[in-house]
Write a protein that binds this DNA or RNA. Sequence first.
DNA 1: AAAATAAATTAACAGCGTTAAGTTATTTTG
DNA 2: CAAAATAACTTAACGCTGTTAATTTATTTT
Lengths: 200, 200
Amino acid sequence: MVSRNRQESGKENLRQEIMDAARELFVAEGYASVSMRKIADKIGYSPTTIYLYFRDKSDLLHQICEQTFAHLAQNIKSIQQLSDNPLEKLRSGLREYVHFGLKNPSQYEIVFITPLPHQFESDFSESNGKVAFDTMRDVVTECVLDNLLKTKDVELISQTLWAGIHGITSILIKHEHFPFVERDKLIDNVIETLIAGTRA
Amino acid sequence: MVSRNRQESGKENLRQEIMDAARELFVAEGYASVSMRKIADKIGYSPTTIYLYFRDKSDLLHQICEQTFAHLAQNIKSIQQLSDNPLEKLRSGLREYVHFGLKNPSQYEIVFITPLPHQFESDFSESNGKVAFDTMRDVVTECVLDNLLKTKDVELISQTLWAGIHGITSILIKHEHFPFVERDKLIDNVIETLIAGTRA
DNA sequence: AAAATAAATTAACAGCGTTAAGTTATTTTG
DNA sequence: CAAAATAACTTAACGCTGTTAATTTATTTT
């Protein structure tokens, strides 16, 4: 079965090569502007080869998103571990969420903003985006246990915070032309407003 | 000049006819899935006729968005006039914004959520989007003048509040399957959290 | 070495946004 | 009232797009 392993690893290599090329192009030019032919050109294969590894264009993007969001969940966890203070953990997690979205706008767009084609109803509840959300909920629980927040409704607070950070992330991505105040100042203010409004 | 006026009003009628057909299709099937040919079919003209009234497909969408923005701005203004208390005006305005989005999810989606082509650069200073945002900023200014808020940076506060209400509106529209807590409770909590976090 | 299988390609389809040229209908002018 | 001018609209076409089916090339198994 050695030969079979070699074969499969070769397949996996090309699969990852396609994903890397596609991610670069999606980020640089936007999902809609990148054609399958462009991706194929970049890696020196014919366009139809991509269909041996991905069902269609949106599946390709979906797989890229899942990979990146697994990284996000890990990022948030790592950052939170740097502090012992539950409230500081919460703050750094929220900040990392927004930061991630702005660093990967195309991928954030597809997972949290644009609905995927109805062929596969792979929605938020099955994505790694939810894993990232769960890490935030865990920290909210810590805060509640320490009596740091105004209510003990962990779910209500978590969803409120998520709404807030999703809001700032998505409008910064979508409304590029809007005359925003200085970006980091706005992000800070959103996060501090959310935390202040949630505190005991 | 009577004949010329008749001619122009005919042109305006077809222009509005195109916009109505396009909005319906965009709402039902999404911007990307609707072709110029589909729109033309719906109104019984050839596809190229649309180009006599709109520069291109994104210009057509842009004009539709302007109409929706105007509608939203008027709604918020009307609701705010019902109260004298600045903080209550602010609260009712925020609530109306979310309410408008949930009552017109497809239109909200097109204007505020759906990712637009990169070339879609509009002059915000002359758009109705600015008009809608200004109605909220004016009430924030009232609150600041009454020393009700923690800072006097009207722009920063307004943009923070917009991020928050856009966040809850868009996730309620986009992630209908998500196990949210009771909807009105969540909306209330987001708005109260935002206001509490912004108050003096 | 032959057969089987996997991997990648070529050719093609139907549809897209958009432009240029041509046609029909309306209005203006002499 | 007819001719010229203009406005309104259509036809034909270009170069793209995502995707499928058939086919060729390369590798592995027998």
